[in-house]
Design a protein around this nucleic acid. Structure first.
Lengths: 343, 343
DNA sequence: TTGTAAGCGTTATCAA
DNA sequence: TTGATAACGCTTACAA
């Protein structure tokens, strides 16, 4: 039992393929009777148009892809990804586009890019962007980068990581802390922060700039750097690592809320009173407002990022590319997890 | 400047289309030299294969769709959706499939189904399933339903809502509560719970079964039913509605964690001591473990649901359909939000 | 080992 | 108002 096609309808209804196609796509140009007859036979035969064939002919798919650097499970459990996707999805919904999640295919981003039947890509935090950008260029569809070092001529959306990070660190310093641990996201650099890229690089810069204002630097004694896996468990492990040291910091400045929450939990489990360990996060994920003490953190407009990226991409698809590199603001959200240091 | 195609390579390299195609897809059947030459010219010309044309030829896309009843922003902010998608995504990643999010297209699920270039669908909690199922059937690709009344011959994944709900209510009753408010998810039935469908229906059944064991029924006095919007704000509103009554329940049994958390927050804001209002949720979203008091709730295997659905779908796509209707277990998770009633 | 040619199911161009 | 017919870019029998 073969699939019913436009041909079968044409035959049965006694018209040509063209007419049938019109009946679906330009019904106003056909006599009502013809349209009715064709639609009826289509219904009768149980016809459903083939989206692939349609795309083949029209040259577009009505779908945009969000290109991730890691597998879907890894990436979607990141609590701010859903907010970002909500932003992208909002524009998609408005403009009648579908959304495809494009993780590396069998470990290869290149393969993923080549295989995705989409009209364009939003790339999220691509690391090995040099290679991927080439493939994207070659792929021949427009793309917009989010959270990666912007490329000349390609629309980009980033946030002001440096300002946000600086504000976070300044706040901690203003409260009198001088024994501080920076909790960075592990990226294989083993503490060589000079080699950090993109987001990590800018956040680090912000932290260091704030420290510099107080005449401080990463001295590995009172101001230290620890790297952890960017998950709640990673935060717990990091706390353990930090705490097993002889001298404890009075504050931890974390590059990610989810790690900060892990630290909070581990600290509580270890019986450390909240006021003995201040902590600031980054990202402002939904959970951060609910934990106790509520997490002071740097908020960034996740949803807006998604919206803007999607808008830029859709414009590019329509031939109106705006190669601006947008930088969205970040904001320090004061909650309850930073305490003034006792004198 | 036209797109580079397989033809251009063939011409430039001095081979036929077939040979070029082989060089990409069956390189082992060609002499190494030929392959090399073809790959080199492809590289040189900046060739990228067209996934649509490929799909047109092969008849498959390597993509599965997750069909949602609402827009992407609405659905993805639901805290358990990411977990579910992680499960689906895990299988996709393993099998080299991509994932397409398919919300209603311009308000029409039918249009969305017809337009999505996918090899199959996982449908999530479709309400107006009668109509949609017909369209899905007609569309001619396999599908698996999740969280909706199962259909003969179609693989289905559901959870044991009734048992879970019953356990939740029993727990509250065992703690001595007799003034209880059931907080249901608003679905336009205006309190006529006999008309609830699917998930709501089964959860309600569970609650009522537990009450029956204690000789209780929904009497609208001590045992009441309130419906709220399934968001945190909806929970807060519901609390207000419940509390403005003269007599207050000692426990609230909620059909959703997110609403329960809203209630918790509103109760705290209203100055109600935690031990004066017990509460049980449903779903066990990540946040439920972090709020205080930590929420006692019914957990369901969101991720496993996604995995199973994806596995069933992929099997169907491979022609091995298993039309079993799976029912996954739920489990009462005892935390801190239910207190024994004072005698 | 390589080439010819027939699809795949539409849309779009022109002509009638 | 309708109908041939040519794309669209690839895969894959079948032939040579």
């Amino acid at each position: 039992m073969k699939r019913i096609g436009i041909n079968d309808i044409a035959k049965k209804a006694g018209f040509s393929k063209t007419t049938v196609s019109f009946a679906f796509n330009n019904p106003e140009r056909l006599p009502e009777q013809t349209v009715r007859k064709i639609l009826d036979t289509a219904e009768e035969l149980g016809y459903s148009p083939d989206p692939i064939a349609r795309s083949m002919s029209t040259g577009h798919t009505g779908t945009i892809g969000v290109l991730f650097p890691q597998s879907i499970p890894d990436v979607i459990r990141n609590p701010f990804i859903p907010e970002f996707l909500a932003g992208v999805g909002e524009i998609c919904t408005r403009e009648g586009f579908s959304l495809m999640l494009v993780p590396p295919l069998k470990g290869s981003i290149k393969r993923a890019i080549e295989n995705a039947a989409v009209d364009g890509f939003v790339t999220l935090g691509l690391e090995e962007y040099k290679a991927s950008m080439l493939v994207l260029r070659q792929r021949g569809v427009p793309f917009v980068t989010v959270d990666s070092d912007p490329i000349e001529g390609v629309p980009a959306v980033n946030i002001d990581d440096e300002t946000g990070a600086k504000a976070a660190m300044l706040h901690v310093l203003e409260q009198g802390h001088r024994d501080i641990c920076i909790l960075a996201i592990r990226s294989g650099k083993e503490g060589h922060y000079e080699e950090y890229h993109g987001t990590l690089h800018y956040r680090m810069n912000g932290y260091l700039a704030a420290l510099a204002e107080y005449g401080l630097t990463l001295d590995r004694k009172r101001i230290r750097l620890v790297e952890g896996v960017c998950t709640e468990a990673g935060g717990e492990e990091s706390f353990t690592a930090i705490w097993k040291n002889r001298s404890h910091p009075t504050a931890i400045v974390s590059m990610s809320d989810i790690m900060a929450i892990g630290v909070l939990k581990a600290a509580r489990d270890a019986g450390v009173p909240a006021q003995d360990l201040s902590i600031v996060g980054f990202d402002d994920i939904p959970m951060s407002a609910s934990v106790s003490p509520a997490l002071t953190t740097v908020s960034q407009p996740h949803c807006r990022k998604g919206q803007l990226a999607a808008e830029l991409l859709l414009n590019s698809i329509n031939g109106e590319v705006d190669p601006t590199h947008y930088v969205l603001p970040t904001e320090l959200v004061l909650r309850k997890s930073v305490f003034p240091v006792d004198v």
